[in-house]
Amino acid sequence: MAAKSYDNPELNKKLADQRYHISQSNPQFTKDVIKTSRTIANMCYQCGTCTGSCPSAPRSTYRIRLFMRRNVLGLENEALTDPDLWLCTTCYSCTDRCPRDIAPTDVIMAMRNLAFKKDIVPRNFLQTVQLIYNSGHGVPNNDVNRAARKRLGLTADPPTTHMYPEYIKGIQKILDHFGLKENADRIIKGE
C-alpha cells in the first residue's frame, strides 16, 4: 500500500513517525471519548476485527483499529487531524463483530464531535446544519419534486416544516441554544 501523504508536511511527518511520544498523549482525550461515545473504548485489545469488517478500509488508508489505539494512548492531535476520521460510513459492522463488546463506530462519532469543538470539520457537515436551520430539512424540496408530488395526489410540500414553517422557529431556538449555526457560519466563513 502506498504511504499516506497529505498536503500538510507536519502531519506527514507525524504519520511517518511510528514511535509513541508521551508528550503527545492527553489522558483527558481518552476520558472525553469514553464519555461522549458511551462505550468502553479503553478495553480494546487491538485484534483488528473492526478493520477487517470495515467497508472503507479496503479502499483507503482509514484504519478503525488505529483510531481505537490512538484513543487508548490519548493521541488527541493525531486522531483529530487525520482526514481519514471522516471516512467512516457508520455502518456498525465493526460494532456488531467486536469481541470486546465495544462500539468502535461510536468512538469515531465521539472523535468527530471532539474535532468539531476544535473547528476541524469538513464543509459538507456544516452545510447540513445550515440547511436544517433554514428549512428544517437536510435535503429540502425543489420545484421538479413539487410538480411530481402534485401529480401523485400529494401536497406540493410535505406536511413537515415545509408546509408548516411556523415550526422552524423552534428548531432554530434549539440550534441557537448550542450556538451550532453560529459556529458553522463562522467556520465556513473562515475557510
Partner: peptide, 9 residues
C-alpha cells in the same frame, strides 16, 4: 452528517 458534529444537539 448531523450526529458527527454534535450528538447533544
Amino acid at each position: 452528517a448531523f450526529g458527527s458534529i454534535d450528538l447533544t444537539v
